[in-house]
Design a protein around this nucleic acid. Sequence first.
DNA 1: AAAAAAT
Length: 446
Amino acid sequence: MLKQFSDLGIHESFQQSLSDLSISKPTDVQEKTIPVVLNKKEDLVVLAKTGTGKTAAFGLPLLQLTDTNEVNIQTLILAPTRELGQQIFTNLHALAAENPEIKIASICGGTPIKPQIELLKDPTQIVVATPGRLVDLLKREVINLNHLKHFVLDEADEMITALKVEVDYIIKVIPKNRRTFLFTATMPGTIKQLIQNYMSKHVIQIEANMETTGHQDIDHQYVVVEPIEKLDVLLHFLNSRAGKRGIIFCKTKAAVNKLAKNLAINKFSSGALHGSLSQGIRDRIMGQFREGHIDILVATDLAARGIDVKELSYVVNYHLPDTYEAYVHRSGRTARAGAKGLSLTILQEEEVIDIADFENELGITFKIFKKADAQSIEENNTLLWAKKIFKTKPNREVSEDLKSQIKTIFHHLTKEELVDKILAHYLTENTTVLPKETVSKKRKKH
DNA sequence: AAAAAAT
């Protein structure tokens, strides 16, 4: 249990970059996987929970196995989204910081293809790719995978279902005698049977910490809301988590846009991410989120898998995920590398019945999140309104004369009296009707 | 039905 990377066969040359990345000891999945990859024999199927270091588990040994005298592509890593592909590329680059002779390229879509084609003319040993763009390059015959030795499918269950057509095309053009490595946190039974189609050698299965079901560091909670109070409950939750960071998942791109707009109006530090945005915008939002310039990411399932952002303390399911796997991946954006995190699911009455299925299927237990009462929600909305005033910038010129007339009106008030006046005005303008008990009782009969 | 992935 006190294994070091050197005990697993990782060379001295990676020690510096590992310590620069504050990686000191191998995780369970790394300890089990690295020696088997380094032995140059079998194919691998690796199951390990979210946030346990799968990228380095294949990245480190495959970097080390790279023959730097060989100019052809030896290792291909496929990921389901461009953001994840870029993240894997960045991580490999950092792991190879002391080994600059290893040439790594990222070939994801959404960026001009010409520069990529030019780049591929240089010696390249490791390629991280999304399937669509790679197939495009293969059809143009501008990438050579004839010397491929290692083929990695990250998020393997997703790759061989949602992206099956592209992956199958790629499988056909790469050497039969390659080694194949499948990595995932979820492997539904229906997918298990498909695995053999992708393997070419004897397969070793590795399961790291999968014996206890559910992720021990994630606090699963749900709250039942009426449709009209859903947004208010979310806003109250976000205000209670001020300064903390997290991701809010919605079912559709339209819902992401709508919610992100609403958060922006309420002056939350937030951004939207989904597949209909230009790659430029996607990259900018991801960058801002990773750097901590944005606290809240509102996203579709584009961000559900693999994305590793530091210090996310919560995930919110603003809509229920479609599958149990999607729940595992979404909630797995928090509680990474040993940290704790909250996964909050906001439900409507008719969806509560699904909770038991999630519990049984995933071996987790939900706690009930205590919904803010009507008064706290109203107070919270008043606070949001005050924050809005504070953060609003003038959008046109105001004459000095008008300004001085208005100043005269308030001139004799103290700061406290001024606040009272503004608040009194707000409260008369917003005569919020608190939800009546009778209303909710009536609804429950259905 | 929706999400992702090529232009």
